[in-house]
Design a protein around this nucleic acid. Sequence first.
DNA 1: TCGATGCCTTGACCTGGATCAAAGGCGCGG
DNA 2: CCGCGCCTTTGATCCAGGTCAAGGCATCGA
Lengths: 252, 252
Amino acid sequence: MTAVIPFGELKRACGNCSLRELCLPYGIGESDLRRLEQLVQRHAPVARGKQLFLQGDPLRSIFAIRTGSVKSVTVGEDGAEQITGFHFPGELVGFDAIAADVHDCSVVALEDTSVCEIPFDRLDELSGCVPGLRRQLMRLLSREIQQDQQMLLLLGKKGSEARMAAFLLSLSSRFVGRGLSASRFHLSMSRGEIANYLGLAMETISRLLARFQQDGLITVDGREVALLDLPRLHVVADMGSDGGGFTRRREG
Amino acid sequence: MTAVIPFGELKRACGNCSLRELCLPYGIGESDLRRLEQLVQRHAPVARGKQLFLQGDPLRSIFAIRTGSVKSVTVGEDGAEQITGFHFPGELVGFDAIAADVHDCSVVALEDTSVCEIPFDRLDELSGCVPGLRRQLMRLLSREIQQDQQMLLLLGKKGSEARMAAFLLSLSSRFVGRGLSASRFHLSMSRGEIANYLGLAMETISRLLARFQQDGLITVDGREVALLDLPRLHVVADMGSDGGGFTRRREG
DNA sequence: TCGATGCCTTGACCTGGATCAAAGGCGCGG
DNA sequence: CCGCGCCTTTGATCCAGGTCAAGGCATCGA
């Protein structure tokens, strides 16, 4: 968060970035891209467990993840912590702070993570001149609203199996968009963090993973996961609280 | 949704509106305000139960509530419906559609409701020229993210009592901002809708309201509610899943 | 006036997932 | 190589809140 990389290296930061199609530069012309690049500050990587910013910090910048992964955590008055999201390369964090100029969640690295910092005032200013940038910025804000509302549906209406399946599928589809495997990946978060995020107990996560494996849906080895049966996982993820269990334990 | 009010009446729509401090015009100068007003279309009121738009509709406009109230509802693949929010005068709906140019929730009037329609393309365009408008637009988007994340914390970490208390307090504080009473108000939504929103069963809502009343926290008569003890309601709302019940039923 | 319909309340019972408790791995410093 | 923490698994038990079932009580059209 301190050492800024010198100017020479910064040049073409966004233009060369493999994530540009996911990130802010999407749909921006060459010359405007150059103006955006001038705002971006690259930093030395953030170590696992360190924060990008804390809940309560004033809004200065938003951040794009370049490599690694982070979680965002909100803590309520009573001290209850809720993880409100995990974020991967190409995704931006800090949007919640625009409303009141204060971050209302903390963002913490799950592994060593490098980010691009973008001062918000200057981004706002630039977005006035560059319609494509403004539009993309709003799209990204809107997408976060969408995702949060999907999550509300998950927490409000779905049982533990559907939550777990939806979580795995969400990771899978995000990794695909980044050129990684849809069916084999590494979990950068602990069981406890998954549990927190899904509104379940850690023990429940453990049991669900074991059960999914027994039933041939997935393979788990520590934090390495393989999804074996995507179609069936989708069925499980779409089960309403009604739908019945995906494996009616055959009694007898 | 069809009959547009003639131009004469439209004049000064925003400038005279008592909600301008909550809504889009916040912090915009006189001349820019006039430009914004030219985009706004006022309509005949929407009847209770009718929709402003449906999930799946293409994004054309966003809407500001002028009088009345609405709910937004998302339905999952499996048909499970989740109410993702209630909206009152001065609030805007439709932001979720910016990401993919398609609404991913339906918005339905809870009572006869009048709205201002604002074509999104033209709003986007205008926001390029008017920094204050752009900023306010982003603030409103960001605020929705914040609110959804507060809701995630509620659904993920809080028990039924805390959810109910938080719900009542949220209504209260929003009504205050609109010049209404903080402690006496009418619920425009049914018990079933509250239940759906809070991820609980309708019966649970009924019982909670009865219990809150017994305990002197509130008064309920059908859909008329009075909050009698704001401080204690805040305590209940802040109870983590740990905190213990607000009334340890004295045994013996 | 009388169903019929839609909301709400109340009681009895059931269950999914939390909680409590007790071991496994497994990486790491010494 | 051992010992110490941390994460994870697995089993046993518990309980908040869901589900099922019966009314209650307005409003409405015939």
